[in-house]
Design a protein around this nucleic acid. Sequence first.
DNA 1: CCCGATAACTCAACTAACTTGAATATTAAA
DNA 2: TTTAATATTCAAGTTAGTTGAGTTATCGGG
Lengths: 390, 390
Amino acid sequence: MFDVRPGTNPDRSRVRNRKAVLGLINSAGQMGRAAVARSLGLSTQAVSNIIAELEVEGLLIERGAQSAGRGLPAVQYGVNPEGGVALGVEIRPDVLLTSLVDLSGKPRATRRQVLDDLSPSRVTVAVLKLRDWMLKECGFTNERLLGAGIVMPGPFGTTGLSGQASDLPGWQTVDVAGLFSQEIGRPVIVSNDANAAAMAERFSVAQGLTDYAFLYFGAGLGLGLVHRCQLVDGAFGNAGEIGHLPVMADAERKPLEQVVSRVSIQSALAANGPLDIEALDRLCKAKDPALMRWLETACDALGQAVGVIENLFDPQTVILGGAMPASILDHLANNTPLPELSVSNRPDAIHPRLQCGTSGRMTATFGAAALILNRAFTPQSTAMWERPPA
Amino acid sequence: MFDVRPGTNPDRSRVRNRKAVLGLINSAGQMGRAAVARSLGLSTQAVSNIIAELEVEGLLIERGAQSAGRGLPAVQYGVNPEGGVALGVEIRPDVLLTSLVDLSGKPRATRRQVLDDLSPSRVTVAVLKLRDWMLKECGFTNERLLGAGIVMPGPFGTTGLSGQASDLPGWQTVDVAGLFSQEIGRPVIVSNDANAAAMAERFSVAQGLTDYAFLYFGAGLGLGLVHRCQLVDGAFGNAGEIGHLPVMADAERKPLEQVVSRVSIQSALAANGPLDIEALDRLCKAKDPALMRWLETACDALGQAVGVIENLFDPQTVILGGAMPASILDHLANNTPLPELSVSNRPDAIHPRLQCGTSGRMTATFGAAALILNRAFTPQSTAMWERPPA
DNA sequence: CCCGATAACTCAACTAACTTGAATATTAAA
DNA sequence: TTTAATATTCAAGTTAGTTGAGTTATCGGG
């Protein structure tokens, strides 16, 4: 499951340091060699060598010198968006979504393909084809592909939450990461939609944050937790199943998902027939009374959930995103009553307690790619989580 | 706050590898050089050098050769309990508790000192004195002291939960870690009681586990989260404030702490006057009716809380511990109804969903020391969580 | 009972990656 | 104009891990 080798040798040191340099420059926008060296606790020379290497490989580009006070102006380097791309794959019961995201976190291509047969073999074939199309369309060679992130409906393995409609038939016993990495020939990371979407925020709203929670509107409602720049996904990859959190709504105790989710909007607005994101956006902007009523109970329930997340996890901020119109997310972020009895209710807070992130249908698909980008920018946590041989 | 240098150089490599070797051998009990090398992905030679070094320093001891099939029997090494000690300090509003814990996680000495003046200066003086006494009593030289863990009532900083009785006056603005590490001249880690107690379990019930949650009975009820062998303590060190989690009890919505905590026992058994752990133990063993009633509602509420923890963090297990008699913790662990709608409700589960850990008054004090032991056994997570210079 | 396969371990030479210190270049402040 | 400060590079030096050959001890098969 975890192929991390806790031991460090020269090779692995270099890999780590390269990631550290890239990640630092990425989150700072641009930096000079000396500044990077100070920040990482390495010698200027070491950083200089690494940066030279990364520049030759096209991962960094020079951005001219910048004078800051006395002394020789430092030559600035920034991450080259063209330096690499990550493939994002989202497998849903009804559809296969893919995207290509460049090193700066910007989506370059997206694909949406309805599949009648979602068997692993058919999906891998489709993904390979889509990868080639998108790479060609964006003018990237195959060598520039850093890896693929795969998003699938959780929970993984058989749990007390299994057997739902969102489960993919025929995938339960498959080693998904192994399958795809064999086919694609690149590193593959598998996760659920909320975790992936949370990672995507590292390239937008959560840039520079180390600890945050991401509430994701997908089929239901999911939670992605980021601690010290790394996903907290649980022992079996199923952390963040917040949909079943009991909240009070209409003087009743209900699962959060039943009050705050697209399904719950749909049932609140049943009279309008099936609604897609654009339709919801229009209704929100028109202040549709039924939607406003839904928003009121949703805000109230969301406030309770945010309180639980804050007190259990103590994040810098909680971010809302996913398959919802930005107008509704905005309303939720701005009108949710946040509990006073919370560790996050701090007078000296720098970040808002609740804010909006990326919205839209493709959020998790981009997030899938972000799993790979994050890997390129973050030295592996090397805590010893491998079991000693029996 | 985090003084981690993400960059790796030969020196830091060695430090990491030493910790990896120690940690691996610690969790396995004993191992040979070759097995360690395989597990860490290092060459036998590298491990051999490191083990030789650790043996000279007294951190490892030879445990004889063990033949396993064909081939030269591997010389086994185990962690030498005498190799080092960690100082655990627990500062409470009413009392100062200290302990000395050896490398195997076994407490060697404990002290309980009532202080009328809890100012930082008085406490540091007292701690230094207690450290010297305990070191002398156990026959350890000062060089063998690995560091000190400090446990204080949370939450840290001013939050929406501040201003409670458990707050320590005069400590809010103090850099506690800096203060103590200056005085003691060793690494210092500061945390809250639940987090520390969770770390202590790595040396008993949670040995070999990578992901677990620990419910700690202290002044209230706290939660310690361990993910990939590392504490998840939140952006400001305040994660795990589970006491305010709303649960249903007696058909009402109440904070968990009001139903499951020592204070709540005390008010349920008000007729008996003030009760200490031993008194509670006697009542439990005598099946006192009032206590049994309390246990019933507590179990019910606990089940709800465990459900939330499981679905949000997906741990391998949830452990109960702290300032309660083992009899009560046992009852809770065995009689709590665990929700079926949980990702932890898996037919193929290896670990019990809920179990007992260390109980007693000193749990968190031992845990404080465990913070340091854990540091000695776990290579620092080197994710890049340092902010780039502004 | 002996011999060969197997595995742990060590020695010595080798290599990769980072560090150090001197030299050079460029800028701002005195 | 001089001086201090800073970035950068060059070249030599250091540390730690790797490699491959050789040694030793055990098991198991003939």
